[in-house]
Design a protein around this nucleic acid. Sequence first.
DNA 1: GTAAGGTCTGACAGCACTGTCAGGGTCAAG
DNA 2: CTTGACCCTGACAGTGCTGTCAGACCTTAC
Lengths: 115, 115
Amino acid sequence: MKIGELSRRTGVSVRMLRYYEAEGLLAPQRTGSGYRDYGPAEEQTVRRIKMLGAAGMTLETIQQLLPCVRNNDPEFTPCNNLRKILADQVSLIDERIETLSQSRTILAGFLSSVT
Amino acid sequence: MKIGELSRRTGVSVRMLRYYEAEGLLAPQRTGSGYRDYGPAEEQTVRRIKMLGAAGMTLETIQQLLPCVRNNDPEFTPCNNLRKILADQVSLIDERIETLSQSRTILAGFLSSVT
DNA sequence: GTAAGGTCTGACAGCACTGTCAGGGTCAAG
DNA sequence: CTTGACCCTGACAGTGCTGTCAGACCTTAC
């Protein structure tokens, strides 16, 4: 399928589909006239990128992870560092939550001081 | 005092002190030769900016808030929205924490699926 | 008077995307 | 054959800071 249809089917903008490719996360076939031609495998990949992105991962991190999920549909193929990457991501999120919680405490303090 | 000393005393880089000024959060005197000349009031302001920034507020938001804390002015009239701004910020942080928590859940799911 | 160190302005770079526009090619239908 | 929808590449804008560099001026001390 062409890029517009894939965009419609996945909800990812055309702009971002091209960006995924520029960042090395997708490599669709090209038609004779240069149009990108995506297959079902690519569509699945895009859905995975979207899901991992929703989990707050950067495209760079997703790119590292992608080879581990490219093959088998339902589950991850265990790569050596897959667990480490995921665990690191969870730690990263925990750190961010902790930082935000501290900020919240500070602001709540200000708020109560003007009440 | 000059900008370098203020930087040393507050731990805010010279670059950022100038940036604060460009964004309208500071307006130090100038010497005859054009050097910025900060007084104790400015130093206090910088410390407040730093604290509010640590609470995750953008400079734009801090700028709105600053007139309310600039001097312990008994006049609250122009700061009727102080509490609202603070409350909004807390809500914003809560949203971000919620988003991160959802991301965490997704990632933890991935992690358990490869365990 | 000269050397060192501080300061000035202005501008470019980088993050991690995301939108948008320009200028031009392709394809299907009427 | 022309129209309209779609596609291509490339580039600029904007976020909210933050570092760094260039070229020039000021100040202090030796």
